[in-house]
């Protein structure tokens, strides 16, 4: 421990408060009885689609496509997820099997 107990508590609480503020900021902006602007209603409709796309790319941001495993474990596992989900439409099966497959691939097959 570099910081003493009180410094540590304050640091953690400051991080917590700033995070809460960021999460709540839009709600503060558009609270009360005023009608929500049309632009925000529109964003509410389209942003969830776009953000999930961004989050997938974010998860894959450090995949090495020019060397190492050439992103093959990710490609194989995501393809498996896609096929499973098209067949079964069961989130648990798709995510569970996909993850197990990925773990097997990076632990046993593509070992670097």
């Amino acid at each position: 421990m570099t910081q003493n107990i009180w410094q540590s508590i304050v640091t953690i609480l400051v991080i917590a408060v700033v995070t809460l503020f960021l999460r709540g900021f839009p709600f503060l902006l558009f609270s009360g009885s005023r009608p929500v602007p049309k632009f925000i209603t529109y964003m509410g409709k389209v942003l969830p689609f776009a953000i999930i796309g961004i989050l997938i790319v974010y998860c894959l941001k450090d995949v090495n496509v020019t060397g190492g495993s050439y992103g093959l474990p990710e490609l194989i596992s995501l393809t498996a997820v896609l096929i499973l989900h098209k067949l079964k439409h069961n989130i648990l099966i798709s995510v569970g099997v996909g993850t197990l497959l990925y773990m097997l691939l990076v632990q046993l097959v593509f070992v670097y």
């Binding site: 999930i52 989050l55 997938i56 998860c59 894959l60 474990p73 990710e74 596992s77 995501l78 997820v81 896609l82 989900h85 989130i91 798709s94 995510v95 996909g98 993850t99 990925y102 773990m103 691939l105 990076v106 632990q107």
Partner: peptide, 13 residues
């Protein structure tokens, strides 16, 4: 190792 792929798979689903 690789367990964090559960989030990638979830987002993809």
């Amino acid at each position: 190792k690789g367990i964090d792929f559960v989030m990638t798979a979830l987002f993809f689903v």
